[in-house]
Every structure is written in C-alpha cells, then in structure tokens.
C-alpha cells in the first residue's frame, strides 16, 4: 500500500478484509441459526400430535382463524345474488349418506330440540308451508370450483322462529343424513344467516336425488362440504359437533 496522508487509525486493506470476514461469519452464523430454528418450527408445526387428520398446531391456528372470522361475521354481510338466467346445474360432488333408496313419502325431517332427547318430525309439506325464499347465489366447492345456482327453500332462521326448538343462544347445529353417514357441524350464527336455507328446489325443480332430495342445506356462508344433502336429523349440541370433512383434515368452520 502506498503512503497515505491519513491518520494512523486508518485501517489497512487487510484489516478491512478481516473485519469483513468477522462480520460475515457472525451474520452467517446468526442466519444459519435462524434457518435451523425455522426448520424446527416447521417440523413442529407439521408433526405435532395428529388431531383430525391435521397436526395439532395447525388445527389450533385454523380454530383461531375461525374465531377471527366469527367476530367479523354478520347476518348483514350477504353473498351477491345473480340473474336467474345465469344459473347452471352444479357438479354432484359427494354421495356419502345417499346410498340407500329413499322413499319420499316416508321421509321425515327429525329435529331434536336443544337440551331435549325426543325428536320432533316434520314432513316436507310442513316445511314448504313456511315462507318460500328463492335466491340465485354462487355455490363454492372447497376444491376451488364454483357454480351459480338458483335455490329455493325456507330460511333456517324462519323455521326456528316458527318452531322454537332452539334459541339463538344455542351454540351449534349438527345436521346428519338419515343414515348418519354424512354429518355436518355449523355455528349457530351461520345457521341463522338469512341466506341459509333448508332447500327443496334447485333451478326451479324439486331437488334430484344426487343433489340431496328431498331436503338439503344451502348456505353461501360455507363451502359445499357443509351444505349437507338429504337431511335426516338436526340436533343442537352444547359442544362443537363432529364434522365429516373436519375429521379428514379440513377446517371445521369452513366459512366463506
């Protein structure tokens, strides 16, 4: 290095490079440790105790997300409605609980009141006597596809208002097919949303068997997995009820 007019404190190139090496070493050490911690965190998240086909920590966050969504949820937040002419026939995904032949004349909706044990039975005609609501909304499958469909039925809220088998204070609704093979859990707020229907018509026709005849649930505040076909039994449990797809790794809330 040539003579420099600097003070003696000026570091030489070698000293600068040494400092560079020292700082690099420290930074890469910190970075490496952080990467290791991240890797351990990732392993902890993915290999925690398996609850419902999903690791415990992930399930905990999904449930926390549901609480956040529940806070924001409002019956005044409505799914957009579309012109009836845009309605199409949706794919008939899922046939769990639809295996047995169904005799429409013998079918009854059984509803066990909150806190009770003896179900009350309803015929389709009794449900159809309640105010009919028609809406053209977008059905969203958890797989990612969506179809605009015209549905008609009775609001679940209207049904409960006419037959007070549970109050709005009941926390959960459990809905099952007649054979109990398919089952769905709903939070009461979603069940009472004005677009949540006990539905008996699709695109102007009575429900077909593959779409859940004679009665199904329809609600644009949930994915299709919650919109149970061929309703058989409704209960109002105090504890969060099991849910077919939540037991297979999906979010219990599955709210839109």
């Amino acid at each position: 290095m040539p003579d420099t007019p600097q003070t003696p404190l000026t570091p030489t190139d070698e000293a600068v490079l040494q400092e560079a090496r020292r700082r690099s070493r420290r930074s890469f050490l910190v970075g490496g440790t952080a990467a290791l911690a991240g890797l351990l965190g990732w392993r902890w998240l993915s290999t925690g105790s398996e609850a419902d086909g999903l690791s415990g920590p992930l399930r905990t966050v999904l449930d926390a997300n549901a609480r956040v969504a529940g806070r924001y949820f409002s019956p005044t937040h409505l799914a957009p409605e579309f012109a009836r002419s845009r309605a199409r026939r949706p794919r008939a995904n899922g046939s769990v609980g639809l295996d047995e032949e169904l005799d429409p004349a013998a079918w009854r909706l059984r509803v066990t009141p909150a806190g009770g044990t003896i179900p009350r039975e309803f015929t389709l005609a009794e449900l159809q006597a309640l105010p009919r609501v028609e809406m053209t909304t977008e059905l969203k499958c958890i797989e990612g596809w969506s179809t605009i469909v015209t549905w008609a039925g009775v609001r679940f809220a209207d049904f409960l208002a006419r037959y007070p088998l549970a109050s709005a204070a009941a926390p959960f609704v459990h809905l099952t097919t007649p054979d109990e093979a398919y089952f769905v859990g709903l939070d009461m707020a979603s069940a009472l949303h004005p677009q949540t229907l006990l539905c008996y018509e699709m695109n102007g026709q009575p429900l077909t068997a593959e779409h859940g005849a004679p009665l199904r649930l329809v609600t644009p505040v949930k994915y299709g997995i919650k919109q149970i076909k061929r309703l058989g039994h409704i209960r109002f449990p105090a504890q969060r009820p099991p849910d077919y797809w939540a037991a297979r790794g999906y979010d219990w809330y599955a709210g839109l």
Binding site: A69, Y72, F73, S74, H77, L78, A79, P80, E138, K140, S146, P220, V221, G255, L256
Partner: peptide, 17 residues
C-alpha cells in the same frame, strides 16, 4: 378466502372466479 363476508372486495375484483 371470505367471498361472502368480503363480498364487496370479491365483486370489486371481478367476482370469485
């Protein structure tokens, strides 16, 4: 993620699809 609760946003972006 929340096309019903945030319907205004979904609609603004041209709809769900």
């Amino acid at each position: 993620y929340k096309p019903t609760q945030l319907a205004w946003l979904t609609t603004l972006l041209g709809g769900y699809e």
